[in-house]
């Protein structure tokens, strides 16, 4: 056989073009359920700093747009923002990064947590830190558990089963809609909700649950947000929006005392069954 003939044969041989639909579908599900795509919360110093600075700026702006601008508060906030920015570059522990590591370490090494989650801990995530305490979600071989840890005494205060959905991030701010009309205030919010269940879940809609005191003052704002997405374990979704509320006759402290404005987030979901 000549080389040209062989090349022609190679080029012209009819090739099998076989499709395995069931394998394709089953493999896709197995891959997506394997947990490699879990979105990791970015716990880096700059991200934490930006959160804190934004929070500080919000607080500073609140002082400026309040009924009676509180210059002392504004100046202190501005100073705090600067200190955080400088300290973050100079002393990384200031941002709470060290506290996160400590909280995770306390939870991971706790016998109570190991008993509840199983010895083989696969994932640890610190979802909140405040007043020397932290909430840590641990994924072990037996399932998900939430541990409350005391950073000062380095102990676990309690362990409970972790919910499939949890709020892992929250940013909110309040300010007057305009300088001419401070009777109408705007509450803006952003919540990040993380799904940790084992099954795929279809999220139809999500909405913040307002406190009863706050809901009586609401003037406008669409709460229900259509999502229509399928989530696998580790996925996060964000909900954000703004609510205008009536602040007529309320002083700044009255408004602050209204809080918490949101008690939680309502998620409307359905489990997704795999096609056999």
């Amino acid at each position: 056989m000549k080389e040209e003939e062989l090349i022609k044969k190679l080029e012209e041989t009819k090739l099998p073009d076989i499709e395995l639909k069931s394998h394709r579908r089953a493999l896709k599900m197995a891959l997506l359920d394997a947990g490699y795509l879990q979105q990791q919360r970015k716990v880096n110093i700059l991200a934490l700093t930006s959160e804190k600075i934004i929070g500080g700026i919000d607080f500073m702006l609140k002082g400026l747009v309040s009924r009676q601008p509180v210059w002392k508060t504004v100046l202190l906030s501005a100073l705090a923002v600067s200190v955080i920015a400088v300290a973050t570059v100079a002393v990384p522990g200031v941002t709470g990064h060290a506290d996160r590591v400590l909280a995770a370490s306390i939870a991971q090494n706790s016998p109570e947590v190991k008993a509840a989650a199983g010895e083989g801990i696969m994932e640890t995530e610190v979802i909140s830190l405040s007043n020397g305490k932290g909430i840590v979600v641990i994924k072990g071989q037996r399932g998900l558990v939430t541990a409350e840890v005391d950073l000062k005494n380095k102990i676990v205060l309690g362990v409970s089963p972790a919910p499939e959905f949890s709020i892992v991030d929250e940013v909110s701010a309040i300010g007057a809609v305009s300088n001419d009309n401070i009777d109408v205030q705007r509450y803006t919010y952003k919540f990040t909700v993380k799904y940790r269940g084992n099954d795929r879940v279809y999220i139809e809609a999500i909405e913040p649950v307002l406190s009863s005191a706050f809901s009586k003052l609401v003037l406008s704002g669409e709460l229900n947000q259509v999502v229509n997405e399928i989530l696998v374990t580790g996925d996060t979704i964000e909900i954000n929006g703004e609510i205008l509320f009536n602040a007529k006759g309320l002083s700044k402290s009255d408004i602050v005392n209204l809080g918490p404005f949101v008690n939680g987030v309502k998620v409307r979901s359905e489990k997704v069954l795999n096609i056999p």
């Binding site: 009819k14 394998h23 599900m29």
Partner: peptide
């Protein structure tokens, strides 16, 4: 490795193997 069990896959593989057998020129090559 990824593991999953799907009874549909087994019958699908059998018919795919049968389809592959038909490509005699390719198999010889």
């Amino acid at each position: 490795s990824v593991s999953f069990s799907d009874p549909g896959i087994e019958s699908e593989v059998l018919s795919a193997e049968a389809e592959l057998e038909k490509h005699e020129d390719f198999l010889a090559l």
